[in-house]
Nucleic acid binder design. Structure first.
Lengths: 138, 138
DNA sequence: ATATAAATGAAAAAGCTTCTCATTTACACC
DNA sequence: GGTGTAAATGAGAAGCTTTTTCATTTATAT
């Protein structure tokens, strides 16, 4: 991911944008909130305003560079877009997210949208529960 | 739904609670935000504070009388719990929600949670799109 | 170099939801 | 039927995430 991607998206190549991209690419967290990104930038020594982080992430979303996930009403998290659609398992205890892909479900969703006369634009599936790790460390 | 349900839930039978229940039962809207309920109460001549509406809805949720749906990060909507799990089709144009039940998807979700070692507590599936009606009135 | 449209930072504002705390009310008990 | 007490309520303040405003800075086309 580099300057070219930003130009293609009609976005000027600026330091905040490059740094946000860098954070998203290098963080161990695959899902980051705006706050997470903001803090990571600070740790990196970049004083980029939180408002800018929100703006940049929203623009990246518009450009298809990242996806925004809205976990259960609260705050949003962002993940780098890699072209592969996937759904999420959310651990209600440790808040970690695991991903999965299931073709059966994907197909059923398309069928249901069609049956109901919906022109499907997107979908989101979350399975909430307690992950293997948290079950042990009750 | 009546006083008994409130008592069973360990909640005192108060006017605000009875009225909120009444609104949820009689409104044509199956999904109502706290604000919707609040306004409906006002129209009904009941001056019940918004904070109380939130409190009551949250308690009802805890008591299993209503479910809370969090649509895409924004505000929450509540629906009377009727025991039947269902998923949602959300029209991104008119914000209306349709419901559906699909056993194939339900089963796959259970399987996936099991495969991943998750103890599933809940799940939510939203199909976003443009409903039949909004497609016509573009 | 320079003009200009876009981007940024900081603070304010917005929108939903929860909290605080003084006052009121439901209900168990006498 | 009174009465004490814990619970519920109302009104406003506060909390959180996110967006907006606007003056200043910056990227980029010329």
């Amino acid at each position: 991911m580099e300057s070219q991607d930003l130009r293609k998206a009609g976005l000027k190549v600026t330091l905040p944008r490059l740094k946000v991209l860098e954070i998203l690419e290098t963080s161990d967290l695959r899902h980051m909130s705006a706050e997470d990104v903001y803090k990571a930038l600070l740790e990196m020594g970049e004083e980029i305003g939180l408002a800018t982080v929100y703006r940049v992430l929203t623009q990246f979303e518009g450009a298809g560079l990242v996806s925004r996930l809205s976990i259960d009403g609260g705050h949003a998290v962002f993940e780098l877009e890699d072209g592969s659609h996937h759904d999420h398992l959310f651990c209600v205890r440790c808040n970690r997210i695991e991903e999965f892909i299931d073709d059966v479900i994907e197909q059923r969703q398309r069928d249901i949208a069609a049956e109901k006369g919906f022109e499907m634009t997107d979908h989101s599936l979350y399975i909430y529960g307690i992950c293997r790790h948290c079950q042990k460390t009750k």
